[in-house]
Structure formats: C-alpha cells, structure tokens
Design a protein around this nucleic acid. Structure first.
Lengths: 333, 333
DNA sequence: TTGTACGCGTTATCAG
DNA sequence: CTGATAACGCGTACAA
C-alpha cells in the first residue's frame, strides 16, 4: 500500500491530473459522466487518498483547530474537548490538542509548536491572565479563551461566571447561618477563575459579617500540607460558631472530604462542606455535597462554534458567552 | 504579521535559501559563523516560522500521531491521552485526537479522516473486536490498540487484564460468602474488555456455585431501564441469600449506587456493591465502594512509547503490555 | 469538456 | 563554505 499520487490516478484513468483534481473537488459541472465514473473507479481501485499537506500548501487551509487545555486528565478539560470535537466534526475540522499540564512554560511551548502548524483557529484554557503573554504568539488567529478570562477583551471568552456562581453559593452559606468560612483554593494569582471563585464567597461573607479565611494550596497536597489543613479544620470546629469549608475545585473537594472523614467529623453537624465542579459523585456521598456544576461540554461547543463562525464570517463581531452554572443544593450545608 | 517564507529570509540575510534551510536543519558544520549569526538575526527579526506543510511535503514526516478514543468525556480516555501526550511531547510528536463517541460508525469515519493526514503512528481504543474492521484502513501504520483487544495479534495491545482483575474480585466476593451476583454491564458483544470483565466474575461464580446473572444495559439508563434495574435489585434483596452487584464500569457504578440509595437499601447489609474503574470518589461514599483501579495514564504512556519505538526502530519486535490493575478492597462488600 | 504549465514553501543533490 | 535547481503532490488560470 504505497502512496498513490494524483498523477498515477490520472494516467491510470487516461485523463490529465487537472481532471482528477476537478473530480476531487467536486467540480463535476463540466465533466462527462463517462470520465467521472472512470475516475471514480480508478480512485477506488487504487485506494487513492489525496495528500493533505500538498493540498494545504496550495489552498492554505489545514482544517486544523488547536485546543490547548490546562490539564487533560481533568474532567473539565476533557469534557470541554468533547464538546468542541462534536462541533468540529460536523464542520469537517480536526482537533490538534495540546496539554499544558498546569504549567505556564509547557503552555508556551505548546503554543509555539502550534504556531507553525498553520492552524486555522485556536481554543485555549489559559494558564496566565495577562493578555500580553498571548498577544504576539496568537497574532491574528481566530481564538477563543475558555474557562479563564484574561485582562483584556481582544479575544472572546466562553465560560461560567465564577463570581456570580460563588456569590450564589455564598448566599446559601449565609442563609444557613454559618459564622466562619474556610476557602481552600489553588493559587489564585495565576487564574482569574480561581480568583473570582474566592472573591464571590468573600464578598457575600463581608456583607453578612461572616469570618472568612483563604488557604491556598499548590498541587496535590503533600503530607505536611495535609497536616496543616487538618489543623485548620480542627481549630475551625473547636469554636462554637458553625463553620463551613468551600473547596474551589473538584480535586480539592475530594481531598478535603477525605480529611474530614479521617478526622471523624460529621457533615454538616460538625462542619459544613461545599465545592466547585460537580461530576456527580457528590450526589453519592453521605451526606451528598452541595456544589456548583458547570456545563463543560457546553463550553466546548460554544467555543468551537464561535471559532468556526469567525472562520466563516470574519466580519461578524464576536462576543463573550457566559454558560449558565447550576448550584446543586445538597445536605452537606 | 503575514507569512514569511524561507526566500524572504534568504534575501533579507543576503544568502540563498539553501543556506537558510541548512541553518534551519542544524547543518552548521560547514557554515561560517558570520552567516550563521546573520541568518539567526534575520529569522528573529522577521519572526519567521518554517511552513510545516511544505516541510512535510518534502520529508514525509508529519510528526503527527493519531489517537482515537472511545469517549473523550470518559476519564479513562482522557487520562490515557494525558499519558500518551506526556511521552509524545518529549519525542516532539503532536497528537491528532479523534473521539468515536462510542459509535462504530464515527470511529470508522475518524479513521478515514486520519488516513489522509499522513500520520506516522496510531493509538486506538477500538469499538470493534474484529481485526478485519481495521485491517485495510490501518495498513502498515505503526499502531497500538489500547484498553480493548481484538481477535488478532497483528497489532500490539496495551491495557489491563480484565479477566484476571475480575477473577480477583470474584474471589473476594466468594470469600465474603455472597450467594448471588448481579452483573451490570454495557453490551458485551462489541468490546472484549467488557466481555472479559463479565467472564472473570462468572468463572469464579461457577467454581464456587454462586448464582450469577448478567444484565446488559445500553447507554445512559433511560427511566424505563432504571425501573427494570430497581426491580432486579428488589428481587435480589427479597431473597434471604446475601447478594452483591458488580457494575462493570464507573458510570454504571454511579448509577447503580444512586438507585440503591433511592431504594433506601443499606450497603453491604442489604446488598453488596463493587465495580470496575476507580476515580477515587469511591473512597468517599458511605460505605466506600470496593473497585478495580486501572492506571489509564500508564496505559497511554506505554502505548505511546511502543508507537514511537516502532517508529525509531522498525525492526524491533513489539509485544503486548499488560498494565497492572489494583483491587481496592473497601467496606461495600 | 479536457489538458498544459506554473507555483505553493521546503529540502536535497549537485556544482562551484 | 555557498548557490542553483529539481523535486514533493496538488490546485488553477489559461489555453485548446
């Protein structure tokens, strides 16, 4: 099964390669049925497939859209890609996926590599909130930022309104009468999304004069940090005032819940618990955990739709899209 | 920021494009330092990036490896890709990802599309166990099958030994003294993995004279099926003999657990529960659920390593790789 | 209705 | 050490 070229097809079919090319691109308007059928047959017989690179070299259309996610192994990124892929397929685009592995350096490297793949569009879940980090490397490429906003609106954004979502959650916390909140988050300075999640809860806490503390945690919670969190939780529960923990993503929520279980504390009697991200296991714990659910697939679909729109109608104005999130109220709070 | 070509760089640097090409490909051996530096400078100034399509057209090297997964929104697929991506990066390959969406037709379409992207390698989580479904479309392309074996060993396989893993689990079930097993699985005829999971449990059940029943479920459990399962569970618990349910993947496990909760049954007092796939939420429920954990990231890494090995040492014999799985014994059983 | 000839941006083989 | 020049496989004016 060696590579066939359009020339071989042409000679085999007894026509010139222009005719074959016309056939390939669906220009049948002016082509005798006999030659059309002859070409069709030889293409099938020879199992010919046009060379995409050569086509691209002429047409400048790669049909490739880059997707750079923060962490492929995270369900949010995966579902986002899933949504993007569904839309891409119907428009005949293919996805070139890069994983930043939660590292700004790797993201930059990914973008550099994508740069010379002649992508037609880009969807990115950025590691930085500084638009200057992306300006030159993205250039004029139709791009959509997902999940995390940057400090500029030169590119459309698709994602949830973290601030609004956590304000909702904050109100629920206040209504339940909690007096103290411990927010556990990954470093908030690199991601506007993380920042906004904290900000939303803090804002409501301030208004309701609820004590609110932030604990920033890097990566996968090494033993010494586990200890620190445990102590924090211990102090929290010694106090008479009812306290609640808000874990700002699914992974942290899982780990915090494990710690609470280790400490043999009862939820919500001893301490309340709620989180961000909801991949449905939260409904199965005892008690079920209140958390904010985002439609990651929907984000991916909207983002890809926007990119493709830009491609097909370049003049059209693009605007941000806020995808609704849901607060799943459950017994943990 | 228009596209620069090697010609423009050449004239700007006052050399011929051959020299620039040599520079690009690291052939400095015979090049004066002065010209080298001059080229370097102009490339930087002009922000020149070589056109991959043109390079590929000459060299036949795309640097692209295709990955076809069963369902991107499934953590197994996502983690597998994550592992594959890590290895691909260090070898400077990029991933072209396709999502079969659990559909054989979509998988076939994906493969057809990948076919003319001139991939250098392929990793596939197949929808069919018939190797003939892949024979012509894959051809000579270095390929690794992951997660699910086919009926032929012409391609290397990487994944867990489902049969062995579920036999382990079966032994535990027997040891716990259960008299009846209900296996809930997605259709087993399309995937050898599913088939083997059922087979392992059944085999141990037969040996220990435990009653064993299989319930096959398609897709996302519509209401009427939910009802059917509920009834099955009802019958199971009415009997005096201790019964256990084995859900053969994570999604089913989640849904079954929800149903058990709805029925207000106690685990394991009224009914035991265990599953396949373990994304750690299983440790947080009450009680924690016993399940089999597979190292999906490891599978992806091993698969990509195998593909790249084939690329770099084509003569080397390739062989299957079984990635160890872990039975997490927990209180649900 | 079909064929000829050229160019897309790069690498590689020659000479020089 | 460097520069012409010919491919690579395809699309497309232009010509026939």
């Amino acid at each position: 099964m060696k590579k066939m070229t359009i020339d071989q097809v042409a000679t085999a079919a007894g026509v010139s390669k222009s005719t074959v090319s016309r056939y390939l691109n669906g220009n049948f308007q002016k082509m005798s049925d006999s030659t059309r059928e002859r070409i069709q047959a030889t293409i099938r017989d020879l199992n010919y497939h046009p060379n995409r690179q050569a086509q691209t070299l002429k047409t400048k259309k790669t049909g490739l859209i880059g997707v750079v996610v923060a962490d492929m192994a995270n369900l949010y990124s995966a579902k986002m890609i899933s949504g993007a892929g569904k839309v891409a397929r119907v428009h005949q685009y293919q996805l070139l996926i890069m994983d930043s592995n939660n590292s700004f350096e790797q993201e930059h490297e990914s973008l550099r590599q994508l740069q010379d793949q002649s992508l037609e569009g880009l969807i990115i879940q950025p590691m930085s909130r500084k638009s200057t980090d992306y300006q030159e490397i993205i250039g004029e490429l139709p791009t959509v930022f997902v999940d995390r906003v940057t400090d500029s609106n030169q590119w459309p954004f698709v994602g949830v309104d973290n601030y609004e979502a956590t304000r909702h959650l904050g109100s629920l916390i206040a209504k339940r009468g909690y007096q103290r909140i411990l927010i556990i988050s990954e470093p908030i300075d690199v991601s506007q999304a993380r920042f906004d999640r904290v900000r939303g809860v803090k804002e409501i806490a301030r208004r309701n004069k609820i004590q609110c503390e932030l604990l920033e945690i890097t990566e996968s919670v090494p033993p010494e940090i586990r200890h620190e969190i445990k102590q924090k939780i211990g102090t929290l529960t010694q106090n008479q005032e009812p306290a609640v923990i808000f874990a700002s993503n699914s992974r942290l929520l899982m780990q915090v819940m494990q710690l609470i279980n280790d400490l043999q504390l009862r939820i919500p009697a001893d301490i309340g618990l709620c989180g961000f991200d909801d991949w449905h296991w939260t409904a199965l714990t005892n008690p079920p955990i209140a958390s904010i659910e985002q439609d990651a697939v929907g984000v991916g679909q909207a983002a890809m739709t926007t990119v493709i729109n830009q491609l097909e109608r370049p003049d059209q104005v693009v605007k941000d899209q806020i995808i609704a999130s849901t607060l799943n109220v459950r017994a943990s709070i």
